[in-house]
Protein backbone atom coordinates (compact mmCIF):
# COMPACT_ATOMS: atom_id res chain seq x y z
CA UNK A 1 0.00 0.00 0.00
CA UNK A 2 1.05 3.58 -0.51
CA UNK A 3 1.44 6.13 2.26
CA UNK A 4 2.19 9.82 2.19
CA UNK A 5 3.33 11.80 5.14
CA UNK A 6 5.66 14.53 6.31
CA UNK A 7 8.92 13.13 7.64
CA UNK A 8 11.07 15.75 9.31
CA UNK A 9 9.38 18.46 7.31
CA UNK A 10 9.68 16.73 3.97
CA UNK A 11 6.74 15.19 2.25
CA UNK A 12 7.41 11.60 1.40
CA UNK A 13 5.50 9.03 -0.52
CA UNK A 14 6.34 5.37 -0.20
CA UNK A 15 5.15 1.83 -0.61
CA UNK A 16 4.76 -0.14 2.56
CA UNK A 17 3.23 -3.36 3.83
CA UNK A 18 0.11 -3.16 6.00
CA UNK A 19 2.01 -4.70 8.91
CA UNK A 20 5.20 -2.66 8.64
CA UNK A 21 5.83 -0.87 11.90
CA UNK A 22 6.69 2.78 11.76
CA UNK A 23 9.97 2.03 13.54
CA UNK A 24 11.15 -0.28 10.78
CA UNK A 25 9.88 2.04 8.09
CA UNK A 26 11.78 4.97 9.56
CA UNK A 27 15.01 3.03 9.89
CA UNK A 28 14.70 1.84 6.31
CA UNK A 29 14.21 5.44 5.26
CA UNK A 30 17.40 6.71 6.81
CA UNK A 31 16.25 7.59 10.29
CA UNK A 32 18.67 5.35 12.16
CA UNK A 33 18.38 7.40 15.33
CA UNK A 34 15.17 5.49 15.97
CA UNK A 35 16.16 2.41 17.96
CA UNK A 36 14.40 -0.74 19.05
CA UNK A 37 14.92 -1.59 22.69
CA UNK A 38 12.29 -4.24 23.21
CA UNK A 39 9.21 -5.81 21.68
CA UNK A 40 6.86 -4.81 24.46
CA UNK A 41 6.57 -1.03 24.30
CA UNK A 42 8.56 -0.66 27.51
CA UNK A 43 11.84 1.04 26.68
CA UNK A 44 10.97 4.28 24.89
CA UNK A 45 13.99 4.02 22.58
CA UNK A 46 11.79 4.29 19.51
CA UNK A 47 10.06 7.50 20.57
CA UNK A 48 9.22 9.87 17.71
CA UNK A 49 6.83 12.77 17.47
CA UNK A 50 3.58 12.31 15.62
CA UNK A 51 1.64 15.52 15.26
CA UNK A 52 3.95 16.94 17.95
CA UNK A 53 3.13 14.19 20.43
CA UNK A 54 5.59 11.55 21.56
CA UNK A 55 4.59 8.07 20.43
CA UNK A 56 6.23 4.66 20.32
CA UNK A 57 7.10 3.97 16.71
CA UNK A 58 7.34 0.28 17.60
CA UNK A 59 3.61 0.23 18.33
CA UNK A 60 2.50 2.24 15.35
CA UNK A 61 1.81 0.92 11.89
CA UNK A 62 3.55 2.88 9.18
CA UNK A 63 0.13 2.93 7.54
CA UNK A 64 -1.16 5.03 10.41
CA UNK A 65 1.39 7.73 9.70
CA UNK A 66 -0.45 8.44 6.47
CA UNK A 67 -1.26 12.13 6.26
CA UNK A 68 0.55 12.85 9.51
CA UNK A 69 3.58 14.85 10.54
CA UNK A 70 6.37 12.66 11.89
CA UNK A 71 9.55 14.03 13.42
CA UNK A 72 12.62 12.04 14.45
CA UNK A 73 15.88 13.26 15.92
CA UNK A 74 17.19 13.58 12.36
CA UNK A 75 14.72 16.43 11.99
CA UNK A 76 15.79 18.18 15.18
CA UNK A 77 19.56 18.24 14.83
CA UNK A 78 20.03 21.80 16.01
CA UNK A 79 17.88 21.28 19.06
CA UNK A 80 19.59 17.96 19.74
CA UNK A 81 22.98 19.62 19.69
CA UNK A 82 21.80 22.36 21.98
CA UNK A 83 20.30 20.08 24.59
CA UNK A 84 22.90 17.39 23.95
CA UNK A 85 25.57 19.76 25.13
CA UNK A 86 23.97 19.74 28.57
CA UNK A 87 23.61 15.98 28.58
CA UNK A 88 27.23 15.54 27.54
CA UNK A 89 28.38 18.03 30.17
CA UNK A 90 27.10 15.59 32.76
CA UNK A 91 28.58 12.57 30.99
CA UNK A 92 25.05 11.25 31.05
CA UNK A 93 24.79 10.35 27.38
CA UNK A 94 26.89 7.24 28.18
CA UNK A 95 26.35 4.52 25.57
CA UNK A 96 24.00 6.79 23.66
CA UNK A 97 21.61 4.09 22.57
CA UNK A 98 18.67 5.47 24.52
CA UNK A 99 19.56 9.09 23.75
CA UNK A 100 17.45 9.73 20.65
CA UNK A 101 14.21 8.44 22.17
CA UNK A 102 14.97 10.15 25.44
CA UNK A 103 15.81 13.46 23.82
CA UNK A 104 12.68 13.36 21.64
CA UNK A 105 10.60 12.88 24.75
CA UNK A 106 12.43 15.69 26.53
CA UNK A 107 11.45 17.95 23.65
CA UNK A 108 7.87 16.73 23.88
CA UNK A 109 7.86 17.38 27.59
CA UNK A 110 9.19 20.90 27.23
CA UNK A 111 6.47 21.65 24.73
CA UNK A 112 3.84 20.43 27.13
CA UNK A 113 5.22 21.61 30.46
CA UNK A 114 6.82 25.00 30.61
CA UNK A 115 8.59 24.69 33.94
CA UNK A 116 8.49 21.08 35.10
CA UNK A 117 9.52 20.09 38.60
CA UNK A 118 11.88 17.19 39.16
CA UNK A 119 8.92 15.00 40.01
CA UNK A 120 7.10 15.99 36.84
CA UNK A 121 10.25 15.30 34.82
CA UNK A 122 10.55 11.83 36.33
CA UNK A 123 6.90 11.18 35.64
CA UNK A 124 6.93 12.43 32.07
CA UNK A 125 10.09 10.54 31.16
CA UNK A 126 9.32 7.36 33.09
CA UNK A 127 8.81 5.50 29.82
CA UNK A 128 12.38 6.17 28.73
CA UNK A 129 14.64 3.50 30.12
CA UNK A 130 18.36 3.96 30.47
CA UNK A 131 20.59 1.24 31.86
CA UNK A 132 23.85 3.20 31.98
CA UNK A 133 23.31 6.46 33.72
CA UNK A 134 21.12 5.78 36.73
CA UNK A 135 19.06 8.76 35.50
CA UNK A 136 20.53 11.32 37.92
CA UNK A 137 22.77 12.86 35.27
CA UNK A 138 19.91 13.03 32.79
CA UNK A 139 17.84 14.94 35.32
CA UNK A 140 20.72 17.28 36.14
CA UNK A 141 21.12 18.03 32.46
CA UNK A 142 17.42 18.83 32.03
CA UNK A 143 17.35 21.10 35.08
CA UNK A 144 20.44 22.96 33.87
CA UNK A 145 18.99 23.21 30.38
CA UNK A 146 15.79 24.70 31.82
CA UNK A 147 17.84 27.27 33.73
CA UNK A 148 19.70 28.15 30.57
CA UNK A 149 16.49 28.50 28.59
CA UNK A 150 14.98 30.65 31.28
CA UNK A 151 18.01 32.91 31.31
CA UNK A 152 17.86 33.09 27.55
CA UNK A 153 14.22 34.16 27.73
CA UNK A 154 14.97 36.74 30.43
CA UNK A 155 17.71 38.15 28.29
CA UNK A 156 15.47 38.37 25.26
CA UNK A 157 12.89 40.18 27.39
CA UNK A 158 15.49 42.62 28.64
CA UNK A 159 16.51 43.65 25.17
Amino acid sequence: MEIKFWLNGKKIQAETEPDTLLLDFLREHGCCSVKRGCETANSGLCTVLMEDRPVLSCSMLAARADGKKIVTLEGMQKEAEEFGEFLANEGAEQCGFCNPGFIMNVFAMLKELSDPTEEEINEYLAGNLCRCSGFMGQTRSILKFLEYKKAEKEEAKGQ
Partner: peptide, 12 residues
Protein backbone atom coordinates in the same frame (compact mmCIF):
# COMPACT_ATOMS: atom_id res chain seq x y z
CA UNK B 1 -3.46 6.16 34.26
CA UNK B 2 -0.21 7.81 35.17
CA UNK B 3 1.54 4.59 36.19
CA UNK B 4 0.96 2.89 32.86
CA UNK B 5 4.43 2.51 31.33
CA UNK B 6 5.07 6.04 30.06
CA UNK B 7 3.68 9.06 28.28
CA UNK B 8 4.51 7.71 24.81
CA UNK B 9 2.75 4.48 25.60
CA UNK B 10 -0.34 6.33 26.82
CA UNK B 11 -0.31 8.50 23.72
CA UNK B 12 -0.67 5.31 21.69
Amino acid sequence: LKHIVGVQFRNC
